[in-house]
Design a protein around this nucleic acid. Structure first.
Length: 520
RNA sequence: GGCCCCAUCGUCUAGAGGCCUAGGACAUCGGAUUUUCAGUCCGAGAACUGGGGUUCGAAUCCCCAUGGGGUCACCA
C-alpha cells in the first residue's frame, strides 16, 4: 500500500478553533499511525489580512500540542508551494487543461441573470441548475467575446446524465444525482479561483491519500470527486468526521455565538474563569480568548496531554473501557474505522477529568515549571511579593490533587501577598470568627501557644494544633475554621498545618492578631 | 424547501443477530475516610426515538415515520 499522506488546511483566521484542532489531530494521528506524512497547507486565497500574523496562533497551537508537520510552512517540502496564494499558475494550468478537454467551459452569463434564475427556481420550488446558455456559442463567437475582454467565469461541465459516488470511510457509500447539480464555478471573472477547485488541485498535487475533514464538507465532495475525475486524478480516500457541537446543543460549536455559549452552564465556568484570570495576566478577557480557541487552554495552564486526550476521545474510541491516552497511545491505537458518526458535544467536565488525570502524572518539578510563570506574572502585575525559594515547591506539594490547572496557583494569594493586603472572605470570616463566641478565646490561646521560631515547620505546626486543641478540651474541627479564616481569609485550602508552616511564624502571628482585632 | 448525513444513560461512548436482566467513563446523588477543600474507597439512579418487517432470536439487518443536523455563493 502506498504512503499515507494527510493534510490540514487552515485559513489564516487569527486563532485556532478547538473543533478544527480535533480535525487536525485526526489527520495527524492517521499519518503518524501509518508512518506517513502530515502536511500543513495554508488556504489563504482571500489575501485581505496580514497572513503571517493571522497564522501565528495556529502554528502556536500545533506546537503547543506537539503536532508536527512534515511538509508546509517553515519546514518546506518537495511538493510546495504550501500557500494557496502562491499557486495561481498551477490552478490556471489546470483550468486550461479542463477547458481544452471540454470538461469546463467559459460562462458569459451576467451574475445578475444567474441570480434571477436561481430565485425563479426557488420560487417555483424547482431545483436550480444553471442554464448553460454559453454552451450554445460558436467557437468564433466565444473567441470574440474573450478577445473583447467580456467578463466570464469558468465552470465545470457536470455530466448531468449520471451520478457521482464516494465510499466514505466513516459514512459509507454516498451518492448524488448529477442532474441536480449546478455547474460549479471554478474560476471567478476576476481570474481568481474557488476553494472547491483549488483544494482538488492541491490535494492531487500534494498526493494526499486521505482527506479527513468535518462532515460539513460532505456535500462539497460531490463536486470535488467530479473534479478529480475530470483532472484524471486518483480519488483520495474520504473520511467525513462529525463536527463538534456546543455542550447541550446539537449545533456546530462556533465562535459566532459566544453569547449563547456563555450561557451554557458547562461552559459558563470556563468563561468565568477566563474573566477572572486573563485580566490579571494582561491577556484581555473571555472575548479575546474564549473556550472555543485552543489558546484559551494553553494560557490558562492546561496540559497538552489533557486537551489531546479530550480531543482524541471526542468522536473516537478504542474500545469499551480505555479512557486515558497519551499522545503515543493515541497514535498507536487510532484508526479511521473507529470514528463515531454522530456529532459529539464538547464536554468541559470530561476535559477537566482528563486534565486532572494528566496533571497527577507530573513530577513536582514539572508542576513547578508550569506554575511559576503564573506567579511571576502576578508578581509583575498584581503586586505579589516575590516568594522565597522554597515557598512555591512547598505550596505545590501541599496542593497535591487540588492543582488541576497551572493557573490554579492564582487561587492561593494568601501565600504571596503582604499581611496588610490579605483579603478575607467576608461572609465566611464573619461566620467563623466574628459571630463565633469562642473564636476570641481560641485565637488568643492559639497565639499564646505558638511554637518558637527555630522549629516552625509542618510537624511543629501539626503539634501546635493538636496540643492546643487537647489543652482546650476541643476537637480539631472546632478550632480549625477560626484559625484558617484568620490566617488565609478563606474557608478552604491546603492542610492547616502546611498552611501555617508555609506562612511562617511571623506572618501567622500577625494575621492571627489582626483577626483578633475584629472580635469584641 | 431540494439534496445529503445522523439517532444507545444528562454527556462521551461499548455494542458489527444470541455473550445484553445493554458494559465503561464523566457528571449527579448517597455512604465511608478526613481538620476545611480537593482526593480516595464503596454504593445508587440513569439509555437502545416510534412503527412495521426479516429471523427460532434484533440495540444490532431492511422499510417507513419522527426528530436532529449539514449544505445549497463568482465564501473557505
Amino acid at each position: 500500500m502506498s504512503t499515507v499522506r494527510t493534510r490540514f488546511a487552515p485559513s489564516p483566521t487569527g486563532y485556532m478553533h478547538i473543533g478544527g484542532m480535533r480535525t487536525a489531530l485526526f489527520n495527524w494521528l492517521w499519518a503518524r499511525h501509518n508512518g506517513g506524512q502530515f502536511i500543513l497547507r495554508i488556504d489563504d486565497t482571500d489575501q485581505e489580512r496580514n497572513v503571517a500574523e493571522a497564522l501565528e496562533p495556529i502554528f502556536r497551537a500545533f506546537r503547543w500540542l506537539g503536532l508536527d508537520w512534515d511538509e508546509g510552512p517553515d519546514v518546506g517540502g518537495p511538493h510546495g508551494p504550501y500557500y494557496q496564494s502562491q499557486c495561481g499558475d498551477l490552478y490556471q494550468a489546470a483550468i486550461d487543461r479542463l477547458l481544452a478537454d471540454g470538461h469546463a467551459y467559459r460562462d458569459f452569463e451576467p451574475p445578475a441573470e444567474t441570480q434571477r434564475q436561481r430565485e425563479a427556481a426557488e420560487k417555483e420550488k424547482r431545483t436550480y441548475v444553471n442554464s448553460r446558455q454559453s454552451l450554445e456559442l460558436s467557437d468564433s463567437q466565444r473567441s470574440d467575446l474573450v478577445a473583447q475582454g467580456t467578463p466570464h467565469v469558468v465552470r465545470l461541465l457536470v455530466p448531468r446524465d449520471r451520478k457521482v459516488a464516494i465510499d466514505d470511510v466513516v459514512r459509507g457509500h454516498v451518492e448524488w444525482d448529477c442532474a441536480l447539480m449546478p455547474d460549479p464555478v471554478l474560476c471567478r471573472s476576476n481570474g481568481t479561483f474557488l476553494y472547491n477547485f483549488a483544494t482538488v488541485v492541491d490535494d492531487a498535487r500534494l498526493q494526499i491519500s486521505h482527506v479527513i475533514r468535518a462532515e460539513e464538507h460532505l456535500t462539497n465532495t460531490a463536486v470535488q470527486a467530479l473534479l478529480h475525475e475530470a483532472l484524471g486524478n486518483p480519488l483520495p480516500v474520504f473520511a467525513h468526521i462529525p463536527f463538534i457541537t456546543a455542550p447541550g446543543s446539537t449545533k456546530k460549536l462556533s465562535k459566532r455565538d459566544l453569547q449563547k455559549l456563555r450561557s451554557s452552564p458547562q461552559l459558563k465556568k470556563l468563561f468565568d474563569r477566563a474573566d477572572e484570570v486573563f485580566p490579571k495576566l494582561g491577556l484581555g478577557d473571555s472575548t479575546a480568548l474564549s473556550p472555543v480557541m485552543v489558546e484559551y487552554y494553553e494560557r490558562l495552564g492546561y496540559l497538552p496531554a489533557g486537551v489531546l486526550n479530550a480531543l482524541g476521545r471526542l468522536g473516537w474510541s478504542l474500545d469499551d473501557k480505555t479512557e486515558y491516552f497519551s499522545r503515543a497511545e493515541l497514535v498507536a491505537g487510532f484508526t479511521l474505522d473507529r470514528i463515531v458518526k454522530k456529532p459529539a458535544g464538547f464536554d468541559a467536565d470530561k476535559l477537566a477529568s482528563y486534565q486532572a488525570h494528566w496533571m497527577n502524572q507530573l513530577s513536582l518539578e514539572e508542576k513547578l515549571a508550569g506554575c511559576r510563570p503564573f506567579v511571576d506574572a502576578m508578581v509583575e502585575r498584581e503586586g505579589w511579593v516575590v516568594p522565597s525559594e522554597e515557598t512555591l515547591p512547598k505550596l505545590i506539594a501541599a496542593l497535591g490533587d487540588r492543582l488541576k490547572v497551572f493557573s490554579d496557583v492564582l487561587d492561593y494569594p494568601e501565600f504571596f501577598v503582604l499581611d496588610e493586603k490579605l483579603v478575607r472572605d467576608e461572609k465566611a470570616f464573619r461566620q467563623r470568627v466574628i459571630d463565633t463566641p469562642e473564636a476570641k478565646a481560641i485565637l488568643s490561646g492559639f497565639v499564646a501557644a505558638c511554637p518558637s521560631e527555630e522549629s516552625f515547620d509542618v510537624a511543629a505546626c501539626e503539634q501546635w494544633l493538636h496540643q492546643f486543641a487537647e489543652a482546650q478540651g476541643l476537637k480539631l474541627g472546632q478550632i480549625v475554621h477560626a484559625i484558617r479564616l484568620s490566617v488565609t481569609g478563606r474557608p478552604a485550602g491546603v492542610g492547616l498545618a502546611e498552611t501555617l508552616a508555609l506562612l511562617g511564624r511571623e506572618r501567622c502571628l500577625t494575621r492571627l492578631n489582626e483577626a483578633l482585632g475584629h472580635v469584641a
